Simulated scan of single mutants.
Amino acid sequence: MNYTLNQLRIFLKIVEKQSITKASEELHLTQPAVSIQLKNFQNQFPIPLTEVVGRQLFVTDFGQEIAEAARRILKEVDGINYKLLAYQGELAGRLKISVVSTGKYVMPYFLSNFMRENPGVDLVMDVTNKSRVVESLEENQVDFALVSVLPQHLNLNKVGLMKNILHLVGNPKYFNKVKLGKSSFSKDTPLIFREKGSATRAAMETYLTKKNVTVSKKIELTSNEAVKQAVIAGLGCSIMPLIGVNNELKKGDLKIIPLKDLPVITTWNLVWLQNKKLSPVALALLDHLNATKEKVIKDNFAWVQEY
C-alpha cells in the first residue's frame, strides 16, 4: 500500500460529510479532484470503502474502520508537528471551542489576534445550538464553550467577554408598533422563536414569563439567520441579539420596537469545566483574552451603544 496523508485527510472529510461535494467545498478542492483521490485511495483496498445507493454516498463498515484508523494517524502526525514547533519555541497545539449559534458574531473577534500571533495553533470552532454546546462540555470534547446562559448543572470556570443585548425587532413596513396587552401580544403580531434548546429562545421565554404574557400566534425556526430573514419578510417579530442584526438595522430592514423591561441583557461567557486540565494553548488564550478583551470591544463593538 502507498496511500498518502493527503488521501487520508480527504477520505476522512468524505466520511464526516457523507458527500464528495460537501467534502470538496470544505477542503477548497474541485469535486473531480476529490473523486480522483478517493478512487486512488480505494484502489489500494480489495474491499469497498464506500458505496452509492441512488445518488447518496454511504460509507461501508470497513470504510468506517479505515476512517477511524486515519483519524488516529492524522492525530499523531499533528502531534509530531506541534512538538516540532514547541521545540522551536513556538506555541503549538489544537484549540477546540464550541459556540452557540449567535456567538459566531462575537467569538472570531476575540480570537483573530491570538491566531495571527500564534501560527502554530490550529483552531476547531463548532457553531451549534446551546444543547449541543452543553453536551460537548459535559463530554469533555472541547477546551472552551461560548454561552450567554450558564448551564446550572455543570461546575464551570468562566471569563466574561461582553454584554449580550436582546431587543424586540420587526420590519417597520409591517410592525412599526406592537401592542402588548395585559396578558398577550395582539393577535396580528406573531412572535418568531428559535428552537427549544436555544439560549435566545430561553431569554425570550424568560421575558414573557416575567411579564406573564401569553403568545397568541407562534412561529418556530431552527436558526438565528432563519429567524432574522423571517422577521425581515414580515412573518412576525422576535426578541433577537443586537449583535446579529446591526446591518439590517442600519439599512432599515429591521427596527427596534420599544417595549417595557426590554432589552434583555445577558453576558457572553467563555466557560470550561472546573476540573479540566487546560493545555498550554488554552491557558495562553485565557491570558490573551484577559489582556485584550476591552480593546476588542472598543474596536469592534462600540456601535452597540448607539442603540
Rank of each mutant, 00 (worst) to 15 (best):
L5A: 08
L5T: 15
Q7H: 05
Q7F: 02
R9L: 04
F11G: 05
F11N: 07
I20E: 08
A23E: 09
E25C: 06
E25I: 08
L27P: 09
H28P: 01
A33D: 08
L38Q: 14
Q42Y: 05
Q44P: 09
P48A: 00
L49T: 07
L49Y: 10
L49I: 04
R55I: 06
R55Y: 12
Q56R: 14
L57E: 07
F58G: 05
F58S: 05
T60E: 12
T60A: 08
G63M: 00
E65I: 12
I66R: 07
A67N: 12
E68R: 15
A69T: 13
A70L: 01
I73W: 10
G79F: 02
L85V: 08
Q88V: 02
L91W: 09
L91M: 02
G93K: 04
I97G: 11
G103S: 04
K104T: 10
Y105P: 06
P108C: 02
F114K: 06
M115Q: 09
R116T: 13
E117L: 14
N118K: 08
G120Q: 11
V121N: 12
V121S: 08
D122V: 06
R132F: 03
V134L: 00
S136N: 14
N140R: 15
V142G: 01
A145R: 12
Q152A: 15
Q152F: 15
N155A: 06
G160P: 10
L166A: 08
L166K: 09
N171C: 02
P172R: 00
K173N: 13
F175H: 02
F175I: 00
L180T: 14
G181C: 02
S184K: 12
F185Y: 00
F185G: 01
F193I: 02
R194Y: 04
A199T: 15
T200H: 03
T214H: 10
V215Y: 03
I219G: 00
E220L: 00
V227D: 08
V227F: 06
I232L: 08
I232M: 04
I232F: 09
A233N: 14
G234D: 07
L235F: 13
L242K: 12
G244L: 05
L249D: 03
G252Q: 13
K255A: 05
I257A: 03
I265W: 10
N269F: 01
L270N: 14
W272T: 04
N275G: 01
K277T: 12
A284M: 10
D287C: 03
L289G: 13
N300T: 02
W303I: 01
Y307E: 04
